[in-house]
Nucleic acid binder design. Sequence first.
DNA 1: ATGTCGGAATTATTCCGA
Length: 257
Amino acid sequence: MRIATWNVNGLRARQDFVLHWLRERQPDVVGLQELKLTDEQFPVDVFEAEGYSALTHGQKAWNGVAILSRKPAEVLQRGLPGQEDFGARLVSARIEGLSFTTVYCPNGKSVEHEDFPKKLAWFAALAEHFEQVADAAEPTVLCGDFNICPGALDSWDEARHAGHIFHTDEERARLARLFDWGFVDVFRDRYPDTQEFSWWDYRGGAFHRGHGLRIDFLLATPSALGRVHEVFIDRDYRKKKDGLTASDHAPVVADLD
DNA sequence: ATGTCGGAATTATTCCGA
């Protein structure tokens, strides 16, 4: 089973690009983030024609998440309990015995902004949700755009950004609570010393200059992690394809037995 | 160039968020 996560930065603008990727990479289950459309606007028929059912949790203009699946998927949750006012950011499903959740975590904007403490509270609610309703002994995947660099290796310039947004101890402590519960960062587990990024700013030629961050993850409980035989960040799909504009995020992909 | 995108509000330009 091939699973993936991808912040597409607007599905209406990215639809043809996403189809290109699906045909090329042939994933079985995909968590999508930043759809920027409502459930009514989601092009269900387009993905069904490609062999995928879609479970969506969208809203007008901003945020929005979905799960595409080639296998039967039963929705478990739409929205993070208690945090619905902060946008449509979570959807989860049970797919062939795997609990699969995808999230678009709040950005926070800057440590001085009012969204920053709200971001921290959102992460606390996310950890609490898993502590309350999930079982770390079960095969479980939590994937998405976390908008946090877990460590110095995950930033193109930790020294410059330390203490700033995506690089604070407070944000890293909120991620640590998810790790304490039982999640493992699949890419970092397999490649402890490799610097790779999943997001590059559109501005300033950041992609070509190597100015990126690793903020998109596949997290897995040990029983799911044990099934992983490969994981990669699909950097090639951060580039234009057939004249189509890429998202500012690359997909993250893992192959499970 | 605080440099690019996507989307909304409003109707070709400006704003907001990332």
